[in-house]
């Protein structure tokens, strides 16, 4: 660099030297914009929401008054509202369990048997549906489950229409048609969040050194024993990580319950209705506290069980 340009850059250079010597200042300057964004915009919003859950909503004038009340939280325990919470909770649990069972063989195959081109193929083939547009995937299922659509056609061809109707007549799983049944909604949820379970389990299994499994075999364990006593405990952190996604995403979803399945609100749909047409943000805010608390309890439980120790 010539002396001339050095003099031109003098201010900049001394500034950059200052940053290099005072690395705390450098760190601070780097951190201020992201911190402002997340600390003020994001956390600020979250606290604003939390604060509003203690505000009073006047049913008469349909307006929010900044008066402290616990009424919104008390309302959560009314039968109709508790029903919504339980319905959402059990769906989230069912979806999580189903995802674990569907994801495990795939993740296991990816981690232990696929290699080279096949591994890359699996990786992309799991990642693409995960990233593909959420609303398009949900829409795809309404097309698949529609009356006269492909599922009905296949079942008709197999001569199982009567069986399907008997199945749909069952309480808690059935509904009028496939696309308005509990089982339909459950399938769509499981489909949409499945990749979020596959990849963490795969990552956890990938970290298990093959020598560990060989050692187990050398010490006389049968394959089933090795699987249960060596592999499974090491896969648990992956399962937990995945289940945090499936559980939390199902708890907060409000699009799928609108598109597929019987009427009956979910936490998400309730929040949306409360804030939208009615404008009752305090009650909507109280409802959003439910998934936060449930996820908090779940994380705490997972931690107590030692799920994060192996990470």
């Amino acid at each position: 660099m010539s002396t001339l340009s050095m003099r031109q850059h003098g201010v900049l250079r001394s500034f950059s030297n200052l940053l290099y010597r005072r690395s705390n200042l450098y760190l601070l300057l780097l951190l201020v914009p992201p911190l402002l964004w997340f600390g003020v915009v994001y956390l600020g919003s979250l606290f604003a929401l939390l604060g509003q859950s203690f505000y009073t909503f006047d049913d008469f004038t349909m307006s929010v008054l900044p008066e402290f009340t616990l009424a919104n939280y008390k309302n959560l325990f009314e039968i109709a509202n508790a029903d919504i919470v339980l319905r959402t909770f059990f769906m989230a649990v069912a979806v999580t369990i189903a995802s674990i069972f569907l994801a495990f063989p795939m993740a296991y195959y990816m981690a232990r048997y696929a290699s080279g081109v096949e591994k890359g193929f699996f990786y992309v083939a799991v990642m693409l549906p995960m990233w593909a547009s959420y609303i398009v995937k949900a829409y795809g299922w309404t097309v698949i489950l529609a009356k006269g659509g492909i599922v009905y056609w296949v079942i008709d061809r197999l001569g199982l229409t009567q069986g399907l109707e008997a199945f749909l007549a069952l309480p808690y799983v059935g509904g009028n048609t496939l696309s308005t049944s509990h089982i339909g909604r459950f399938m769509v949820f499981t489909y949409i969040w499945l990749p979020f379970m596959i990849l963490p389990i795969q990552a956890a299994l990938e970290r298990v050194p093959p020598s560990l499994l060989q050692a187990s075999a050398d010490l006389g364990a049968r394959p089933a024993q090795t699987f249960r006593n060596v592999l499974l405990p090491l896969a648990i952190p992956g399962v937990i990580a995945g289940s945090i996604f499936t559980f939390s995403l199902t708890l907060g979803d409000y699009i799928i319950p609108q598109l597929i399945g019987p009427s009956g609100l979910f936490i998400g749909t309730m929040v949306y209705t409360m804030q939208g047409s009615i404008g009752n943000i305090p009650m909507a805010a109280a409802f959003t506290v439910v998934p936060i608390v449930l996820i908090g309890i779940y994380l705490n439980l997972a931690k107590r069980l030692g799920a994060f120790d192996a990470l």
């Binding site: 951190l31 600390g39 915009v41 600020g44 959003t288």
Partner: peptide, 25 residues
Amino acid sequence: ITMMLIIPIALPGIITGIALLAAFK
């Protein structure tokens, strides 16, 4: 700080959405 960066995708989107809406309002 790391945690704070992750929260927006770890929490259900509906919470982020309504929190921002409440703040904007």
